[in-house]
Nucleic acid binder design. Structure first.
Lengths: 237, 237
DNA sequence: CGATCGGTTGATCGGTCTCAATGCAGGTGG
DNA sequence: CCACCTGCATTGAGACCGATCAACCGATCG
């Protein structure tokens, strides 16, 4: 059974046995990383790709004095720097949120994979394009949605992503994020995120207890996120 | 002299004469496109790449009933769909803003270029990664900056991008965007964009007349965008 | 000449931020 | 074992930024 990373790549683009073998070989050398470890610093050049096999990480940019903007989450199976070409200056910092298990692949190996393994190259393209898709979604999220819908969308997205890697149990997920993290993602204050979460809970859209979130009806949550209801609508009756 | 597109690619990643020849060949068959023409529809599958040689276009997503979010601008030399792999469902719509001159390259040709012209492949990677970089910037822009800084940032970015393709004259640019376009980019109302523009003008940060914008001091504009001044600061005295 | 589109301005409303205080849990050192 | 501290969640009060609504203007165009 290949690891999460290889499975996820195989999901978004067809891979053959030898592709899988080659990738598995590269991700077999793992390391354990402590929470809140900075793996990549915005602005510094980054020579390798990072594969996340377990745990939670996030990517963020800082605005001089002001707050940080989280621009992406990395969950098990995700990777950073899976693109061809020479080393680039990092667009954002990458930091672990929880303890993580990761693997590192250097740029030469990435380039070699892209050059000699067309199916792997495709899967790399797909994964970069998927990142771009999420960035567009997030941009629309913070640009167009009011706070409750914004938070609802984020929770829904994370739930769906974690579902594909079997990190949900039924309708509940473990989200190791603080309300401050959510705030920095949604472009809101953590105080307001708190109120919004409770209003979502009150309207039976979600439920939570500690870091565990329960989504009773993912479709309804999504529908709400896309609606312009000026207030989380109560369940009928 | 190669066209804008080829020059821009050559700028971000080294190309040889035969690469340039091959690309120039592909962009030589141009077409004229009317303003407000939808080239790609969000959600529809898109089989070709579009090169923009002249004119202005924008990419946007729609939120059900609510407004649109512009997620990118395309200026001369930019392209859409410059990535490997099979046709994908479009993440956003692409529509011309002004009359444009464009060229179309089909997916098979793109894949062939990526496979047989390593330097071209690199430049394609770079351009996709540059798009991603801008998306992150925009996300931080709407997520973290107050309205005046947000608009200032956008104007600065567009000025810089247009400068690299020689579409500025000294410190002035022609921006064929309505205030509504800027609003949909910044996640603000067009009324507020109007007020902010005037306050930027009043504080001598920018000047404008019709669609022509003058940036007296690009560095100062950028500095202001990155600051947390609660109000556009007047020039000393 | 009316119609349309984009820009401008004023008044008002409300969503969200900020500030501040409190509570609660886990960890650490005495 | 207790005192303390730190990080996170929670709650209230008040201020403010930016949205909305509405009206008007000017230019362009058929």
């Amino acid at each position: 059974m290949p690891d999460v990373f290889v499975r996820k790549l195989g999901h978004i683009s067809e891979l053959m046995d030898d592709d899988i073998a080659r990738l598995s070989e590269l991700t077999s050398c793992t390391q354990i990383i402590k929470p809140h470890t900075v793996l990549i610093q915005e602005g510094e050049s980054c020579r390798s790709a990072q594969i996340l096999l377990s745990g939670f990480a996030c990517c963020y940019k800082r605005l001089h004095d002001r707050g940080r903007q989280i621009v992406a989450y990395r969950v098990p199976g995700d990777a950073e720097g899976l693109h061809g070409g020479p080393a680039r200056v990092a667009d954002y910092s990458l930091v672990t949120v929880t303890p993580c298990i990761g693997a590192t692949i250097d740029r030469e190996t990435i380039d070699d994979l892209i050059e000699h393994h067309p199916r792997i190259a495709r899967s790399f393209w797909q994964s970069v394009l998927d990142e771009r898709r999420l960035l567009c979604e997030w941009l629309m999220n913070v640009g167009q949605r009011p706070a409750p819908q914004r938070v609802a969308y984020l929770i829904h997205e994370l739930f769906e992503r974690l579902e594909t890697v079997d990190l949900t149990r039924g309708s509940s997920v473990e989200l190791p994020l603080t309300q401050q993290d959510l705030a920095d993602t949604a472009g809101l204050s953590h105080v307001h995120v708190n109120r919004v979460l409770h209003s979502l809970k009150h309207s039976r859209m979600i439920d939570f207890n500690g870091r565990t979130i329960i989504i009773h009806d993912a479709a309804r949550l999504k529908r709400f996120a896309d609606s312009c209801a000026s207030f989380p609508s109560r369940p009928a009756a």
